[in-house]
Design a protein around this nucleic acid. Sequence first.
DNA 1: TTGCGTGCAAAGGTTTTGCATGGCA
DNA 2: TGCCATGCAAAACCTTTGCACGCAA
Lengths: 139, 139
Amino acid sequence: MKRDSEYNTRQKEKLLDYLIENKDKHTNVPTISAYLSAEGTPVGVATIYRRLDKLVDQGLVRKYVIDGKTGACYQYIGDNGCSEHFHLKCVRCDKLIHINCSHLMEINDHIREHHGFVIDPSKTVFYGICSDCAEAENK
Amino acid sequence: MKRDSEYNTRQKEKLLDYLIENKDKHTNVPTISAYLSAEGTPVGVATIYRRLDKLVDQGLVRKYVIDGKTGACYQYIGDNGCSEHFHLKCVRCDKLIHINCSHLMEINDHIREHHGFVIDPSKTVFYGICSDCAEAENK
DNA sequence: TTGCGTGCAAAGGTTTTGCATGGCA
DNA sequence: TGCCATGCAAAACCTTTGCACGCAA
């Protein structure tokens, strides 16, 4: 009677491979599905969704919802201590910025004390526009 | 040959009434549609979507995408575009909390100045655990 | 009358779910 | 042998779009 155990399967491995190879961008499920099919190792979308959910829970993958139209986006972040800092996501160039800033950690304290809410940095993403894109826009 | 003129219709008025009455919360299209139907003044969803789009363009209504599940959320903000606030979302009970706190607005300034990143509060959601769920867990 | 607004239904897309089968340990 | 994982298809949703009709000005 095992519990909470995970099996290793071909599908799981292929998916993770793809995510790691594309860790610098974000992808969505239809894209992943199309790619894996083209590679000759198709994986059902249901499986992809189910597995991504688990990876998100485990903190290995980040889920983004930029807007309602394109659907959710996913990006591999690995387990290099990303749970301890916040992330900025540029909605223009999709760049992911990691910031480890003590000042920002103060907002954790503030919100916990004044709003009774404990923020989970590993699930929280700030959306906005990075300096590069802002510069490019002001031309 | 008029152009860019807007007609006043019963549907338009009802929708705006509802939005203003609920300016303190979020709503989505299915909710609005259900409410208007229950009131005996049903409005087609296509109409609601089309009108909301215009209101968003005019800056009277803000559109949020909290997550992929619930679809887009809308909120009336009127002419005073200063009603920007952040959102906290409890990952346990899915409750959505609005906080309008000047201290939190400092985050914007801090990140802009120290990290060269301009946050868009309408797209940013803090995920974590609300006080109710935290209490329920510590039992 | 003009042309914007509306309703209906169909279509499009993403994501979830039920169920039987397959496969790791 | 257990139990988890998968695939398939159906279903559930949200949202958009085409088209004919209604209605404000």
